[in-house]
Design a protein around this nucleic acid. Structure first.
Lengths: 190, 190
DNA sequence: GTCTATAGGGGGATAGAC
DNA sequence: GTCTATCCCCCTATAGAC
């Protein structure tokens, strides 16, 4: 799980995530990873024999991250509003790091993926959408959110605002993401 | 402009667009284009010496397309509602063709672009956002649209719904885009 | 688990004939 | 404007020593 171990395998994984979100899967090579970690090409292949193995591990890593987040949110008894704020903050952080979200990056590359990775990506997307949907539904029940769409549709509206908002901000500037962020909150404000 | 000439250069351009939207800029090669058009690698380089020249031409092509569309909409006196419907239909067509929009594709690859292409992409985005903003503002004035955000913010909400909606649909299926489409229309319905 | 070394392929790009 | 031929580089991936 997220940044617990400091072994080479984990470092490769986390660097791979970063490179995918900043440059895309096709645009980075094992040599880039080797250089950054001061190891050799062959060492990277030892941990992830093929690049697809790395991609698969990255998507799985994200599923783990979100499962961990879901557990943590339950344990700490965050309100739906707090949960959503925390979720949205993750996207603001992407903008600051000049990254796009993993789902957007995966979508751009989706047609080049082997079936196993496609399947794992779908698993990730379903999981994340499910999480947000539950949060929105809970917020509507307790009166902190208001919307007329189904929770599922409202989730897709919100998620697409966030995902493409991050992409837009990369081109037109951070300010646009902040405006989108504020507008999103208004669309579900009770 | 769009699909008027049938010369090789135009064919390369249009095939390049298709490949970028389906597979991404990094994932296709001049060999792919040469094979499809039954010409040789070198002939592609004759028309577009470097791959960046092709990318630049593709983004310019899209600017031309939207300028042409804007002119046509003015001449044919389409209502704001009709203009928006036509615009949204373009995104539905992308989903059917298993493509993502050029802006989303460009964003994913943005950090790998030379400055000249980045600048041209920004030009495209500004132009398209401006177009939609005018349409939304006109629709609000004539009472066919209703929204409380500024026209610019509402434009960003709508555009991000469309752009990431297309990306999401690639992963989770066409039905999700159709649901997003319906929900979008409700958000601006007068 | 990491190294050196290298195989094998594909990519972008150019020279020069036609 | 298209061709053949080719260069050079970088990529993914593997074999085998340490």
């Amino acid at each position: 799980m997220a940044a617990l171990a400091n072994d080479t395998k984990t470092q490769i994984l986390e660097l791979g995530i970063q490179l995918i979100q900043q440059h895309g899967y096709q645009a980075f090579s094992y040599a880039d990873i080797a250089r950054a970690l001061h190891i050799k090409n062959a060492a990277v292949h030892y941990h992830f024999p093929a690049k697809e193995d790395l991609y698969l591990a990255i998507v799985q890593y994200y599923i783990d991250v979100y499962q961990h987040m879901a557990r943590q949110m339950n344990e700490t008894q965050l309100s739906p509003k707090q949960q959503l704020d925390r979720f949205i903050q993750r996207y603001a952080d992407l903008v600051d790091a000049n990254k796009i979200c993993i789902i957007g990056a995966a979508s751009a590359d989706y047609n080049n993926m082997p079936e196993a990775v496609k399947k794992k990506v779908t698993e990730l997307v379903d999981y994340v959408l499910g999480l947000v949907e539950k949060t929105l539904a809970a917020g509507k029940r307790n009166g902190s959110f208001a919307f007329t769409e189904t929770a599922k549709n409202q989730t897709m509206l919100l998620m697409t605002n966030l995902a493409a908002g991050v992409q837009l901000a990369r081109i037109t500037g951070k300010k646009d993401f902040e405006n989108i962020r504020k507008s999103i909150l208004k669309t579900i404000q009770a």
